[in-house]
Amino acid sequence: MKVQFPVIGLLSGMLLFSCTSSENKANSTDTLATADTTAIPTATMATSPGSADQKTVDLVKLKLTTMFKDELSKNLIDSAGRKFKLFEYDLNEDGKKEIFVGLTGSNFCGSGGCTMLLLNPEGEMISRFTVVNYPIQISNTATKGWKDLVLNSNGKDHLMKFDGKTYPANPSVQAVYEATAPKELVKGLGTADPYLNW
């Protein structure tokens, strides 16, 4: 009996320390998450691909499956081509985010860059870009009420302006972008952003 009480006391102490330690870790993680979130600029946080809800992800998957149904039925798109990156940003300041979809794989990418889609919040096509290298940038200037885009193609940044209905399809033939302000631009579809399967 005398030996059992110290062992039980020792085990109880370890259990209590473990619970307290786990609780402290959970609290410190919550604090860390809050601190990290508040440290991110609002525009970047709001447009992070990770901030896209499941509804948007499902909408994009449906759009891609519908758009490329013929190629899929003939097994012309390999598994690498069945991935995409997602980035949302309110380009026309109407309170709704447009959706950038960065495609990958040999079906959609070549030496000059990859195909990228720009969809409205309901999933309808606004623009289809060719030869785009990721990441993309949102300019601090606007044309016809829509933010200008800075897209890299063939190693150079090009300024893409909205024409009232769409953006030009091929960035490589647009004017080379000359930075007009030292302010860093909002970026999306970066290398750290995960690819999703469709």
Results as ranks from 00 to 15, higher is better:
52 A>W: 00
124 E>F: 13
58 D>Q: 14
139 S>A: 14
4 Q>A: 12
136 I>E: 00
67 M>C: 06
170 N>C: 05
50 G>S: 10
49 P>F: 01
196 L>F: 11
145 G>D: 08
179 A>Q: 15
11 L>P: 00
26 A>Q: 11
184 E>V: 06
7 V>R: 14
131 V>S: 12
38 T>F: 07
32 L>F: 07
56 T>K: 11
176 V>E: 15
143 T>F: 03
148 D>F: 02
115 T>E: 14
94 D>S: 08
71 E>W: 09
41 P>E: 06
74 K>C: 05
109 C>Q: 03
3 V>D: 15
181 A>Y: 05
132 V>R: 04
156 K>E: 07
2 K>S: 10
118 L>R: 04
12 S>I: 11
50 G>R: 13
125 M>L: 15
194 P>W: 10
90 D>A: 11
7 V>F: 09
81 G>I: 05
101 V>G: 12
68 F>S: 01
51 S>C: 07
106 S>R: 03
129 F>L: 01
71 E>K: 15
170 N>P: 06
92 N>M: 10
40 I>C: 02
22 S>R: 04
12 S>L: 15
46 A>V: 05
24 N>P: 00
140 N>C: 06
110 G>C: 10
66 T>P: 01
50 G>L: 15
37 T>V: 13
101 V>S: 08
89 Y>V: 15
8 I>S: 07
125 M>S: 11
94 D>G: 09
148 D>M: 04
28 S>N: 05
129 F>D: 03
28 S>R: 13
164 G>A: 02
23 E>D: 12
71 E>C: 08
103 L>Q: 04
59 L>D: 06
86 L>G: 02
40 I>D: 03
25 K>N: 09
71 E>D: 11
150 V>G: 04
175 A>Y: 06
124 E>I: 03
143 T>E: 12
174 Q>M: 09
142 A>S: 15
83 K>N: 13
57 V>C: 02
43 A>W: 07
38 T>C: 02
188 G>Y: 00
150 V>R: 04
57 V>M: 04
157 D>F: 14
156 K>C: 01
167 Y>T: 02
117 L>D: 00
129 F>Y: 10
170 N>V: 05
144 K>H: 07
85 K>A: 04
58 D>S: 12
134 Y>G: 03
51 S>F: 08
67 M>Q: 14
